[in-house]
Write a protein that binds this DNA or RNA. Structure first.
Lengths: 129, 129
DNA sequence: CAGAATCCGAGCCGATACTG
DNA sequence: CAGTATCGGCTCGGATTCTG
């Protein structure tokens, strides 16, 4: 796949600051963050709305996920003082800007998902017998 | 940041298959995989060469990281039967193709690293006192 | 409605020691 | 040279229960 290579600078990829990418991977590489960001990209949502939409996430984990995303500036949390209380989560400008590389990743994942599954099976077949 | 919004389809982001992106995030979201892929993008490397270049990774963890990347088809492993033995790791075509979205992510991470650190500090300042 | 408290199990990371 | 074996610690995810 030489065309892929053509997209790179002569020296390949420069990984001089692993700590930098770690800050992103730590936040976004977990089980639910990408999913939550994807849903907030469709529309701002309240807590239980997100909980219903995603379905198989516990409130505990959703709470932690949202707070971490808020902590790193991907998501904003605004409290409307009503009864019953309403808390709305939305993407910050930084959260919006992250959607572009995120979309690249999702597209790549979808395009290569079958290849990954096949590679896994081939590897297992080569090890077992 | 409406320009970011303009890059998206009307409905935002479609997260209909969370399991698909999980297959990628599971492999690439860990502590070392991106770093290893970045170095193999520069040149194929042998085990101890990678170990020296990366520096602060144990042989144990490097071994596991490489095997998982091999298992999912990002990396190839070829044994040259010599004394002393030589094992060369290189990117597969799929591994090469992954460099493009990966580069997007790295660029974004570098561009927003300071903003993330600032957001973290602001959040901590808002909670503590 | 929007969480917090608590406890559990799984998996990853790391260091050290050993092997063909 | 290129790993494996073993053990420990830590964090993450999940289920359950309780609160303002």
């Amino acid at each position: 796949m030489d065309r892929a290579r053509g997209l790179l600078p002569p020296e390949g990829i420069d990984i001089t600051e692993p700590c930098v990418v770690r800050d992103v991977a730590d936040r976004v590489g977990d089980r639910w963050s990408l999913l939550v960001l994807g849903h907030l990209a469709n529309a701002p949502q309240r807590f239980n709305a997100l909980h219903r939409i995603i379905g198989d996430i516990s409130k505990q984990v959703l709470s932690r996920t949202l707070r971490r995303l808020e902590e790193d500036g991907f998501v904003s949390r605004t409290v409307h003082d009503l009864t019953p209380p309403q808390v709305e989560y939305a993407l910050t400008p930084m959260g919006w800007s992250f959607l572009e590389p995120m979309r690249m990743l999702l597209d790549w994942a979808e395009a290569h998902h079958n290849a990954i599954v096949r590679a896994r099976n081939d590897f297992a077949a080569g090890q077992k017998p």
